[in-house]
Every structure is written in structure tokens, then in C-alpha cells.
Nucleic acid binder design. Structure first.
Lengths: 239, 239
DNA sequence: CTCATCCTTCGGCCGGCGCCGAAGTGTCCC
DNA sequence: GGGACACTTCGGCGCCGGCCGAAGGATGAG
């Protein structure tokens, strides 16, 4: 990088440096894995990505320095997670751009896992998969969310969250509602403060539970009743 | 790249490859330049970026192959522009993430240009700068746009566009309204179909004109009257 | 036709960086 | 204390890719 006396936009170096963080396959794999919203140890990520621990340590150093990851050291472990909702959104958005190169279930076990993921999963801090879309569509059909002129809760929507006992706390500048493009379905679903609150409530109220240690989620019988009663979402929309 | 038999997300290679497109300083400079929404020739971009024509030719090849740019060959010229609104949004979003490393006016001329850009400019196909924000805020204050629960036009807002004679044609899946984070102001302004329509109308109706060959824009006296009459935006909000 | 202009292709150079294994540091457990 | 474990640092290797200049189309002007 020699000196460039030109009319380049001063943001170019920063933009390139930032994109470089994602521009490595191993780091990209880490970021996608961390989209589950949990904190992983460096060792877990190294095994997941299939590289030596030393290699991964350097990658984590870069990602933390770049502000994409936050770290928390506990004893001899280094826990790492996406820095904030902003970072998560960035990875989501970027991942949504890439060609849906995904057909690849090799074994029955893999096919089952992929099917469960497509049905319901978490995407950072909100619900995704067909479940996430079904909820989003139901909110829209009931006039609680409008997607026709943008993406925002209606007054009735705000009231619905309050009546259902789901608190919506405004934190900083994070929007109350925003669209997150679903990877498997290529359709938008609810994210933002309300999406996160709905997801948290769904877990707290026992509407859904995690399947194994993955991002996949299963709707419980109680959850089926709840979404049917509250939003009129039938079992058909969830299969 | 040896074979990785691991549990990596299959999207990782694509994500990394895609980010690589932006992860080069010269390509980043091109993308930022193209955010003005116009078509540039390869030569113009080469001079702008300060690299040899041969070097830039290779960069353009990658960006086009990656789907970020669209090209149009006319005679011995190769015109290139951002492929679509999706690509523009991606570059905007990414650029908004990077630290606002921008203080740097060296000469009076540069300072003047920076000041004009901060006042009013285009951002791909919509208006940005203090003008863009003033319009967005005015729409919000008048109940035509709601930003409190997301980002969407209200029914009154749709009616306002119709009454003002600004057509809103739904094209594909592009949202009618979405927020674009302003680089200089760090605040959201109106983008999407309605943002583009408003910008186009402003030029067609003579509300504003381009300053020189840059992205900067100047509000005409007629434009000042129009925004004052239609939205109650005073001159103070635009300085 | 001839020349100038714009772009692309090719060969070659060089730096950056992703990778590993070995060695070192810090932490927890017994 | 000793040993196992998690992670980091370091040296070294190899490759990818950005850069240039020279040469080769392709197009338009005269």
C-alpha cells in the first residue's frame, strides 16, 4: 500500500479493512457459527472450523480488534460472541447476499438436522425458519405489523405485545422492528427489539425449546396452543 | 484451501468470497465512488483510484462477476455502475459500519466541497446529507412516516406522495421505505422506492440541481419554497 | 487507411496472510 | 507440588492476489 495522492473516498481503507475481517473462509465460518447468539470458546470454534488452535487464536484476535466480536475470559477459557446486535445484523445481511449455495445433506442425520433448522431456529436473538416467517406473516395479517410500506409495528401491534405480556424496552438506537432476510426461505421475518423480545418470551414461557446443542428449535404443545390462540397460526404453517 | 471435512456452515466459502470483493482498498474506493448512482467508465475509475488501467480492469472483472456491478459497453468505453438497489444498499450499510474516519479537508476548495456534500447530496438514488435528514424528519413529524416502531410510510404518507404527484411504483421486492444510515450525520434518512421517487421528483421539478460533477446537490429557490410549502421545512434546517 | 484512444491480456514481481507445530504462559484439579 | 488443559506467541512455509508495463485487440476520428 503505497501512498495514494488521489481523490479516493477517505472511507475506502476502513471499508476494505472491515470487509477483510469477513473475507476469510475460516473467520466467516466462525461468524456464521456465532450467529446462534451464544458464546463459544476458542477451542470449540477451532474444532468447528477445522484449524489449529493457534490459527484460530489469531483470527479471534482480529475479529475482536475489529469490533465484530466481544470476548470474556473465564479462567483458562476465552469465550467469544458477536459484539452486539449491530454486528449480528451485519453478518446476517452479508450472508443473505450470498448465493444460496446450500444443498448438501449427505446422511440421514444431516438431512434431519437441516430439516429441523429449516422448520424453526434462532437467528442471533430472534426466531427464524418457517416458524419465524409464520409468526411474522400472522402479525402482518392481523394488522399488528405492516410490511407493505416499509417494516414497522402498528399501534395495534405495540398494544398486542403489551397485552401478551412481552415487554419492549427501547435500547439505544436499535429499531423496535426490522426485517431480517431468512436464509432458507428467502423471505423477511421479524427482528429488532420486538423480534428479540418475542423470542425470549417464547423460551421463557415454554413455547419452544432448543433441540440439542444446535440453533434448531422445536415448538412445544404449549407453544402450538399459544401461537394458535394468540395469532391464529395453525399447525399447517409450521410443517 | 485444502479439503475441510468439518461442520462448517456451507455458506462460509460464499460469504468469504463475497466479502473479498469489498476487502480491497482499490475496489472499495470504486464502490464508494459508484454510490453516486451514475455510470463511470473504467478509465475514470482508474484515475480516481490512482492505479493503472490494467489493474483496474481486473478489479472490474471481479466486481461484475461477483454481481456487485453491472456493465454496459458502448463503443470503446466500458461503463460500469452498481448492479441494483440491493448492491447499493449493501455498500451503504457496510460503509456505515466503518468508523467515521473522515476529518481531512486540506484546502479551502476541499473544505467547500465537503461542506456542500454534508449539506445535500445523493446517496445512490435518494437524497442524503442534512437535506435528506430534514425531509425525513419533516415526513415523520407530520405523521407521514413512522420511525418509532420500525420504518414505514403511514397511510397518510402514501396519500401525501399521491397528492404531491410522486408516483410510487412497486418494483420487485424492494421496500417502499427503508432507513439508510447517513454517513456524515449518523442518522437514518429515507431510502427505498419512496426515497428514490422523492429524489427523482426533486430533480424533475427543479427543486434541486447537481453541483458540478459531484454527488453534491443544491436546493434551488423553487425547491426551498416547495419543501417549505409541502413539508414545512424551513431554511434553518438546511444550513 | 492511419492514428489516437480505451480497454484487456499476459508475464513477472512482491508483499501480505493463512496455515502449522513447537514452545511458552496461565489456570484448574488433585 | 505436579500434571492436564486452554490458549497464545513465534518462526517458517507457501500461496494468493494486487500491482505494473508491454503488447494486443477494438473502436472512432480524420
Amino acid at each position: 500500500m503505497t501512498h495514494r495522492p488521489n481523490g479516493r473516498d477517505p472511507r475506502a481503507p476502513g471499508l476494505a479493512a472491515f470487509a477483510s475481517l469477513v473475507a476469510d473462509e475460516t473467520r466467516a465460518a466462525c461468524l456464521l457459527a456465532l450467529l446462534d447468539g451464544r458464546a463459544w470458546t476458542a477451542g470449540e470454534l477451532a474444532r468447528h472450523a477445522g484449524v489449529a488452535a493457534s490459527t484460530l487464536s489469531e483470527h479471534l484476535g482480529r475479529l475482536v480488534a475489529g469490533g465484530l466480536l466481544a470476548e470474556e475470559r473465564q479462567g483458562r477459557h476465552r469465550y467469544v460472541r458477536l459484539a452486539d446486535a449491530r454486528a449480528a445484523q451485519l453478518v446476517e445481511d452479508l450472508a443473505a447476499q450470498v448465493a444460496p449455495a446450500r444443498p448438501r445433506p449427505r446422511t440421514l442425520r444431516e438431512a434431519g438436522a437441516a430439516s429441523a433448522m429449516a422448520r424453526a431456529r434462532t437467528c442471533y436473538d430472534h426466531l427464524a425458519g418457517r416458524l419465524g416467517i409464520a409468526l411474522t406473516d400472522a402479525l402482518t395479517a392481523r394488522g399488528l405489523l405492516r410490511q407493505d410500506t416499509g417494516f414497522a409495528l402498528t399501534d395495534a401491534g405495540v398494544a398486542w405485545f403489551a397485552a401478551t405480556g412481552i415487554g419492549l424496552e427501547r435500547t439505544g438506537r436499535r429499531p423496535l422492528a426490522r426485517a431480517c432476510l431468512d436464509w432458507t426461505e428467502r423471505r423477511p421475518h421479524l427482528a429488532g427489539v420486538s423480534g428479540a423480545a418475542l423470542c425470549r418470551h417464547a423460551f421463557d414461557a415454554g413455547w419452544c425449546v432448543r433441540i440439542g446443542t444446535e440453533r434448531a428449535v422445536r415448538l412445544t404443545p404449549a407453544g402450538e396452543r399459544a401461537v394458535s390462540d394468540l395469532l391464529g397460526v395453525g399447525a399447517a404453517a409450521l410443517e
